[in-house]
Write a protein that binds this DNA or RNA. Structure first.
Length: 487
RNA sequence: GGUCCUGUGGCCGAGCGGUUAGGCACCAGUCUGCAAAACUGUGUACAGCGGUUCAAAUCCGCUCGGGACCUCCA
């Protein structure tokens, strides 16, 4: 029987036993990207983390509805009134229609995530596709007296809302501290309080992305789309809401406030936050330029790396750290992971040809329980991987004749390891063989080399090996003949 | 300035009251014509100072580093 899954809930600050609202079903919402520029590796880490979480929930047998939005409505660059919206700005810079920008970067986002072998969400709604729903929510909040109009824009009245609810529950902030700690920003005169946030913004004359509303030609506030779409597809209260740590405040805090304002209760049971990927010890960020593009990682075409890394290796690297820990990106760490990755994959391949015996020298059942324990403990993938290495070490000993395993145990091992590595961690074998013609050519070359070796013509033998190495093909002499890999 | 997180062996990275996580590197060994690859074995580290406890990397206090959020960001 499956042990219970525990999830760290940001709301309570501790791990809690996961109990879904409807048995066997999970509703999960994850904040997606704003599609105005290329996703960088830090963005990817969050989506890969939640992909792993989605995969494990599926593995446990839950029917999961996974909703991840695309933010394609232009939001302002800052909280000031006169800022240009990000998508319009990019459109101007690239001389494209705003919707061309949205399309371009949405397609790019999907292409990158596919390379990282992430599963597509069940629903991927867009903000611009839910303007009507958002307007309805604004009307509702106004009707409840928790929002006010100011010069065609609508703002959420945080202090009034705080009288009945606790604004700051998620990020552990007190409203008094927030008020006193507010920075002075330009153009906030429309708001009654600096804490108030926009539900609807009146568009300035040059703002292209705009929609009609009862209050003005304008566009919805950033926090509103997630409330509208999560409520529409998952209901007014659902199980899991995820996103990057940097969205905790104010974005998720505002989502809670909006949900409470509309429905009278908190919208989410378990809030999950994935931690940042850092570069040089600092958070990767679009605005500061401290980031790395996936493409640069794959090709190695950057000063930060001296070689490229396969997406699945990068994914493995990320899985070796817990999703709630910061992870610092470096070439050295990647290289170490790459070797470990090969060790794991070689071990898995070797599973197919392992000899079996009447007894097992290890308690296989216990080894498998540990795998599940790790994942049930708030998706602890580093522990999972450590345990996988322990198992591989055992099976390698079986391979060397220094340990034994029964056929049943071996089959159990294979089943669970395959599930964990491919289905849950989402890793893949690196494709090795180029094509049939290359394979045929290599066969010829290796035959010639074998002939040379049989005649102890080491000069020819080593020449073939070295020249192949120069073009990126590694030769490995083993007991069962010579194999080769493309590096 | 406020709120919160964090500091682990050469590097990455788990653990968070008592059992030497794991990976990489290093070193040694097996294999090999030599290599490479692969496999095996070896490391008692927890920022500093105090305290609580039979017992602390793990709890508490202070000091010193690093980071996130408080403005758009995953």
């Amino acid at each position: 029987m499956q042990k219970e899954l525990k999830i760290y809930n940001t709301l309570s600050g501790q791990k809690e036993v996961f109990v879904p609202i409807h048995a066997d079903k999970v509703g999960m919402y994850v904040c997606g990207p704003t599609v105005y520029s290329d996703v960088h590796l830090g963005n990817c880490r969050t989506f890969i983390s939640f992909d792993m979480i989605y995969r494990y929930l599926l593995y446990l047998g839950y029917k999961v509805r996974y909703v991840r939005n695309i933010t394609d409505a232009g939001h302002l660059e800052n909280d000031a009134d006169e800022g240009e919206d990000k998508i319009s700005k990019k459109a101007r810079l690239e001389e494209l229609e705003p919707m061309e920008i949205v399309q371009k970067y949405t397609v790019g986002f999907h292409a990158i995530l596919k390379q990282f072998n992430t599963l597509p969400p069940s629903i991927e709604p867009t903000a611009t596709g839910h303007i009507i729903e958002q307007i309805e929510i604004v009307k509702d909040i106004i009707a409840k007296g928790l929002a006010y109009e100011s010069n065609g824009s609508i703002y959420f009245d945080v202090e009034k809302h705080n009288q009945k609810h606790d604004y700051g529950v998620l990020s552990k902030r007190k409203i008094e501290d927030l008020i006193s700690g507010t920075r002075d920003l330009d153009g906030q005169d429309e708001k009654r309080s600096p804490l108030d946030f926009a539900l609807w913004k009146k568009a300035s004359p040059f703002h292209i992305m705009r929609w009609p509303s009862p209050w003005s030609q304008g566009f919805p506030g950033w926090h509103l789309e997630c409330t509208a779409m999560s409520q529409k597809y998952l209901g007014s209260r659902f199980d899991i809401h995820g996103g990057g740590m940097d969205l905790k405040f104010p974005h998720h805090e505002c989502e809670i406030a909006q949900g409470e304002a509309v429905n009278g209760h908190s919208p989410v049971n378990y809030w999950m936050h994935a931690n940042m990927l850092t570069l040089n010890g600092k958070k990767m960020s679009k605005s500061t330029g401290n980031n790395l593009l996936p493409e640069e990682l794959f090709t190695g075409n950057t000063d930060l790396l001296d070689q490229g890394f396969h997406p699945t290796v990068a994914r493995f690297f990320m899985m070796q750290a817990h999703y709630r820990s910061e992870l610092d990106f470096s070439s050295e760490a990647l290289k170490a992971s790459e070797k470990g990755f090969h060790k794991l994959m070689n071990g898995i391949k070797a599973l197919d040809k392992l000899p079996t015996a009447n007894t097992s020298s290890e308690n296989v059942e216990l080894l498998l329980i540990r795998l599940h324990d790790a994942m049930n403990d708030d998706f602890n993938t580093p522990i999972l991987i450590a345990n996988l290495f322990e198992i591989i070490s055992f099976t390698n000993k079986v391979n060397d004749g220094n340990a034994s395993v029964t056929e049943k145990d071996l089959n159990d091992l294979k089943t669970v390891i395959h599930s964990m590595v491919f289905d849950v961690l989402g890793l893949t074998f690196l494709e090795e063989v180029g094509n049939d013609k290359l394979a045929g050519t290599m066969e010829v070359i290796l035959t010639l080399r074998k002939n040379a070796r049989d005649q102890k013509d080491w000069g020819t033998s080593d020449l073939i090996r070295d020249k192949l190495s120069e073009v990126g093909i590694q030769i490995k002499d083993g007991k069962e003949g010579t194999s080769w890999t493309i590096s």
